[in-house]
Design a protein around this nucleic acid. Structure first.
Length: 619
RNA sequence: GCGCCGAUAGUGUAGUGGUUAUCACCGUGGCUUGCCAAGCCAUGAACUCGGGUUCGAAUCCCGAUCGGCGCACCA
């Protein structure tokens, strides 16, 4: 069993992750989060909110998961998110039909499946693998489609990413942020892709959770106002040049990376820093985390620069869990074009610009009566005339213009040429978008795998009397196993090391935050334990009471689900009012007063207190 | 989607034509238990689904589903 198997087995057994629809045989690409998994996910999402929504100030919105066709026509998903496929009748291999006809058509991307089928037939294109006959071309779109309303007149698609919902709200958001760049908006929600073959557990799902931020910035100024705060922050970068020249990834400060032009600009670098901070905070191991730059040919055509946060997994190697891209103005321009809506921002100049202009000023008192219905068109044509400086403003020329395809002559008395001085305060620009996009499910897998460990624990020395008397030489080295067998045969003895499975989750994300355990199943201990449980819950701490089995068993049970602290009530509690807090990772224990236990545990979980300061150590 | 391999209690497994379907962990109730998976008693729980071959199928064959690996795909 490798670590992947162990993690998935544990996740399944203890209620983190279950294959969906299991009683009906399951369906690939769908996973359920069980009680502990859902709690873990929620905590991770809330940390993301803490960073992006609360601290960065990028408010969260929530939009439908079903989108109308126009949205995805504009985004390019209807056209570009699908592939025309054809299958070999003989060997059943699938091919991209548009690739196969490249030599026979100039515009393969724009052809319909039927047109592609015809080209394949006419040119007698065969299977590149075995030379067999190719079947009809069909469209495979990675979007799930549905219909909106009765009948099936209106097509709807399950969104393949949450981003579009934020782009289409741009005018409202712009107003909300009082029309000033930069501003950002976030969304956490489900997205859907009808993957051809989902694999690798929750690494590739058909329904998954994305946490995305869209940060709208001025394309001419991608410096970040708080860049100084992360300038010296170092992370592991694996740049495009390093990849193409076979060099290794290397650790570098963000200030350096931007100065050397490795990262395109400050905003992107800042997004990388935020990402690293988030991932490490939720429990991704920094040693197994890197940022890999997209190579030129792998980057979406509209992006300027793109970096993936990748984690090292035991089985799959480096796996992308976050994508950070500068999407430029591609999306806003596309939506602007399709929706016929202005999606630009008026940006004021630092200094108003004074511009000298020569303009034609129509005399509407005369043009109106003369041209009647056409008057407005004539006026617009005159105003938009390109008046060169050389134009003699004094001359009494007849101006000839085109109005609605007709030649119209304007006599000199109907206009005036004027030299004007205009003060321009700003201009309309379409912002660029910086987008960090987090795959929450993959992050959860990374957190589980990086937290998972199996360790040897020194068994308690319960050996007494004659059992201890073993020859030193015998106990050492390889004979140990044999000796253990002998020892095991005696009663109540286990002196050998044993395995312990620990989910070393960060206390902030652990589903169960504190286990409340009466040392023995006795009324006088159960009472105070129950009281402590409700005190913790009142404080918002997820506490789980457990009195089943021995204390050791209960510790191990909690180790396995990542409970960071276990609190035990014993007979001393009844006398001196203290309880034992046991730390999951070190297995160390301290005695702490029961009446302040909720605060103590809360502060331990959120890092306001160190374990050593939570009470008096027990040796 | 293609190819190869696999599927037995909650988990990991044994069994390969006729078994009350093995074992361990696990869960539950009880006894016991004074801080790291102790012990005892009781108890719970499985042959992925559909078809076929056969007197008889968990076992053999075919298909589906799911899972793993490789290929393809991954805006």
């Amino acid at each position: 069993m490798d670590i992947y198997d162990s993690v998935i087995e544990l996740a399944k057994r203890r209620g983190f992750l279950w294959n969906s629809f299991e009683i009906y045989g399951g369906t690939a690409g769908f996973y359920d989060y069980g009680p502990l998994g859902a709690m873990l996910k929620r905590r991770i999402e809330n940390i993301w909110r803490d960073i992006y929504v609360i601290n960065e100030g990028y408010y969260e919105i929530e939009v439908p998961t079903i989108g109308i066709e126009d949205v995805f026509v504009a985004s390019g998903h209807v056209g570009g998110f699908s592939d025309p496929l054809t299958e070999c009748v003989k060997c059943h291999e699938s091919f991209r039909a548009d690739h196969l006809v490249e030599d026979f058509a100039s515009n393969p991307d724009t052809l319909t499946p039927d047109e592609l089928s015809v080209i394949i037939k006419e040119n007698n294109i065969k299977c590149p693998d075995c030379g067999g006959e190719l079947g009809g071309v069909y469209e495979f779109n990675l979007m799930f489609s549905t219909s909106i309303g009765p009948g099936s007149k209106r097509i709807g698609y399950l969104r393949p990413e949450t981003a579009q919902g934020m782009f289409v709200n741009f005018p409202r958001l712009l107003r909300f942020y009082r029309e000033k760049l930069p501003f950002g908006v976030t969304q956490i929600g489900k997205a859907y892709r009808n993957e051809i073959s989902p694999r690798q557990g929750i690494i590739r799902l058909r329904e998954f959770t994305q946490a995305e931020a869209e940060i709208f910035v001025d394309p001419r100024d991608k410096s970040h106002p708080r860049f100084d705060s992360i300038r010296d922050y170092a992370l592991i970068l694996y740049s495009d040049p390093a990849q193409s020249s076979g060099q290794a990834q290397l650790e570098m400060s963000l200030g350096e990376a931007v100065e050397q032009g490795i990262i395109a600009h400050q905003f992107l670098a800042y997004a990388l820093a935020m990402t690293q901070q988030f991932l490490v905070r939720v429990g991704v191991s920094p040693e197994r985390l890197r940022f890999r730059q997209h190579m030129k040919d792998e980057m979406a055509h509209y992006a300027i620069d793109c970096w993936d946060a990748e984690i090292l997994s035991d089985r799959f190697g480096w796996v992308e869990i976050v994508g950070i891209a500068d999407r430029t103005d591609y999306d806003l321009k596309a939506h602007s074009r399709v929706s016929k809506t202005d999606l630009s921002v008026y940006v004021e100049y630092d200094e108003p610009r004074v511009v000298e202009k020569v303009v034609v000023k129509p005399d509407m008192g005369k043009i109106g009566p003369a041209f009647k219905g056409k008057a407005k068109a004539v006026m617009d044509a005159l105003k938009s005339m390109d008046v060169k400086n050389g134009f003699d403003s004094k001359s009494n020329q007849m101006i000839s213009i085109q109005v609605d395809g007709e030649q119209v002559d304007i006599p000199p008395d109907m206009y005036e040429i004027q030299q004007v001085t205009e003060t321009i305060h700003g201009e309309n620009i379409v912002p660029h978008v910086i987008e960090p996009s987090f795959g929450i499910d993959r992050i959860i897998y990374a957190v589980l795998e990086h937290a998972f460990r199996e360790e040897e624990v020194q068994g308690e020395d319960e050996v007494h009397g004659e059992d201890v008397v073993k020859g030193e030489d015998e106990v050492q080295g390889k004979d140990k196993v044999k000796v253990e067998d002998e020892v095991q045969s005696k009663d109540k003895v286990k002196s050998e090391d044993e395995g312990r499975i620990v989910l070393g989750l960060k206390s902030e994300v652990a589903p169960v935050q504190a286990a409340v355990l009466p040392l023995l199943t006795r009324e006088e201990l159960i009472g105070p334990a129950r009281e402590m449980e409700s005190a913790l819950k009142k404080k918002g701490v997820m506490a789980a009471y457990d009195d089943s089995g021995t204390i050791g068993r209960r510790y191990r049970r909690n180790d396995e689900i990542g409970t960071p602290y276990s609190i035990t009530v014993d007979y001393d509690t009844l006398e001196d009012g203290t309880v034992t807090i046991r730390d999951r990772d070190s297995m160390k224990q301290v005695r702490s007063p029961i009446d302040t236990i909720a605060d103590t545990i809360h502060d331990l979980i959120y890092g306001y207190t160190r374990f050593e300061d939570a009470g008096t150590p027990i040796v």
